[in-house]
C-alpha cells in the first residue's frame, strides 16, 4: 500500500498528514496512559509491534502475478485499538521510508492513514461487533485482521484515485484501475494474514489470558470457554 515518495501532489499529501495527525496524538496519549497504568501489557504491545514489523516486511506473491505485503495491523487493532496501532504503523513506515525508499516522508500521512488508521479502525469495530454478537472468537479475529489488510489497500486506491482522476470517467474510473492493482492482489494475502493473526491470538490466550481480560479484549467466561474447547 505504499504510495511512493513524491507520488502525491499538493494539496493531497498535506491533507492526509493533517487527517492522520490527530490519531497519532491520541495514540501517544493512550500509550502514555498505558505506560503509567498498565505496564503488564507492554510486552504484548512489543509483540504486536513486532508482528507489524515482520508481516509488513514480507512481500508475498499473489494470484495476479504481482507481489504485495500484508499489513500485520489487525492484531494490534484488536488488542489495543486503532490509536495505539497508528503509532506502531508510524514506526514501521518510518523505517521503510528512510532505509528502504519504500513509501516516503511526503506520502507518509496518506500511508499512515490507510495502514495505521483506516484498516485498524475497521478491524476494531468488526471485532467488537463480532464479540457482541457472540461469534466464535477466532473467526472474529480472522475477519478483523482480513478486513484491516484489505481495507488498507482499498483506502490507498481511493487516495490515489482522488489525487489522479482519469481524464475520461474521472475518479470512478481511476478508483477501479487502482483497485484492480491493489485490492485483487491483496485478497489472498488478506486471507493468509487473517489465519496467522488468529493463530497468534490463540497463543496469546494460552500464555497471558489475564492481560486480555485487563485490556477488555475478552471476558473471563469467554476465555474459560475457549480453554475448555481446546482441552
Amino acid at each position: 500500500m505504499h504510495i511512493m515518495e513524491g507520488f502525491l501532489p499538493s494539496p493531497w499529501w498535506q491533507l492526509w498528514w493533517l487527517v492522520s495527525l490527530p490519531f497519532v496524538v491520541l495514540g501517544f496519549y493512550q500509550l502514555r496512559k498505558m505506560f503509567q497504568e498498565n505496564r503488564e501489557a507492554l510486552p504484548l504491545l512489543a509483540v504486536a509491534g513486532a508482528f507489524v514489523f515482520v508481516l509488513s516486511s514480507l512481500k508475498l506473491p499473489s494470484v495476479t502475478g504481482s507481489c504485495s505485503h500484508p499489513t500485520g495491523t489487525g492484531l494490534s487493532a484488536v488488542l489495543f485499538g486503532a490509536f495505539i496501532t497508528s503509532i506502531l504503523a508510524l514506526v514501521v513506515l518510518m523505517y521503510q521510508a528512510l532505509f528502504l525508499a519504500h513509501g516516503g516522508i511526503t506520502t507518509m500521512g496518506a500511508n499512515l492513514f490507510s495502514m495505521g488508521i483506516a484498516g485498524p479502525l475497521l478491524a476494531w469495530v468488526l471485532y467488537r461487533a463480532g464479540k457482541r454478537a457472540n461469534l466464535n472468537t477466532f473467526l472474529v479475529v480472522f475477519i478483523a485482521a482480513l478486513a484491516a489488510d484489505l481495507f488498507t489497500y482499498m483506502v490507498t486506491s481511493f487516495q490515489l484515485a482522488v489525487a489522479f482522476p482519469a481524464s475520461e470517467g474521472g475518479i470512478t474510473t481511476s478508483f477501479a484501475a487502482f483497485l484492480a492493482i491493489f485490492a485483487i492482489t491483496q485478497i489472498p494475502l488478506a486471507i493468509i494474514e487473517g489465519v496467522i493473526v488468529a493463530l497468534i491470538f490463540k497463543y496469546i490466550i494460552d500464555v497471558r489470558p489475564d492481560i486480555l481480560v485487563k485490556l477488555n479484549v475478552l471476558s473471563k467466561t469467554a476465555i474459560e470457554r475457549i480453554r475448555e474447547a481446546a482441552a
Binding site: M1, H2, I3, M4, E5, G6, F7, P9, K59, P61, S62, G65, S66, C67, S68, A97, L98, A101, H102, G104, I105, T106, T156, L160, F164, A166, S167, A177, F178, I181, F182, T185, Q186
Partner: peptide, 24 residues
C-alpha cells in the same frame, strides 16, 4: 511478480505525472 506499489506508480506516470520529491 513485480510489486503492486510499482505497478500503481507506473500507472500514474503513464498519465504524464512526475514525482516532485525523491527519497533521501
Amino acid at each position: 511478480w513485480g510489486g503492486a506499489d510499482g505497478q500503481a506508480a507506473d500507472l500514474i506516470e503513464s498519465g504524464g505525472y512526475e514525482p516532485w520529491f525523491s527519497p533521501l
